[in-house]
Amino acid sequence: MTFIHSTLGHLGRGTITTVRELGRVAIFSCHATLLIFTYPLKLRRIVEHLYFIGVKSVLVVSLTAFFTGMVLGLQGYYTLSKFGSEGLLGSAVALSLIRELGPVLTALMVTGRAGSSIAANIGAMRISEQIDALDTMDINPTKFLVAPRIAAAIISLPFLTAIFDLVGIFGGYISGVIMLGVNPGIFFSGIETSVGFNDIFGGLVKPLFFGFVIASISCYRGFNCNHLKPGVKGSEAVSLATTSSVVIISVIVLVLDYILTAFLI
């Protein structure tokens, strides 16, 4: 009986904590998003973060895309060749990338590169009282630190996804056409006939949500690093904020991907 009580209690407390935390993240993110549009608009800071989140992620996203596309070309070729349908390789690669793999893998790569850095950066600012310093200077820390990052992530993710899709298709072309001998005309005509507006639209809407999630959660975890776990302060708190934000964002991206796909299909 005691065991049941304690288990239920534990579960209940965990649920309450999770729901409370979700509420806090929601309020924090919505507040920061609204601040993007309040005067004075901080376009320069948004551009700075676009460079960091967007431009600096191009290489890692392209590399991931290229090899993902190559693997898809390789796997797709051997699977389709069993049914004598190698001609469908182009559409298989393109659709997989544009609808699912492009948005999700781009989001995961940006989480690993930029999300972790955002959480660590803001966390370090929190423990060294830089955020308090902003507050004492009457500079709203949420507008100064969080809003431009959210705006930059929302803007850059669709572009990075588009790059991922293009480079991924090129990778599929290399492995399927150049290495395995699929006819290039058939490869590209397959893409042209199978990929529709809805596929591209769906593939570029998802990154908007993913960008919002990546920036919001990494900023939130960094901003509140001193309160993430009782007794964990200082550099340990920054480290916890960084790793936990990457894990949480990765899981949320996958869950959100399913939900969005269900709506967009």
């Binding site: 060294s128 830089q130 308090d132 004492t136 009457d138």
Partner: peptide, 20 residues
């Protein structure tokens, strides 16, 4: 209260300078 803060200057013990 925010307006009030703009009338204050604060030199932090650990300075809290923006390292970036």
């Amino acid at each position: 209260r925010r307006k009030l803060k703009s009338r204050m200057g604060y030199l932090f013990q650990n300075l809290a300078l923006f390292d970036a």
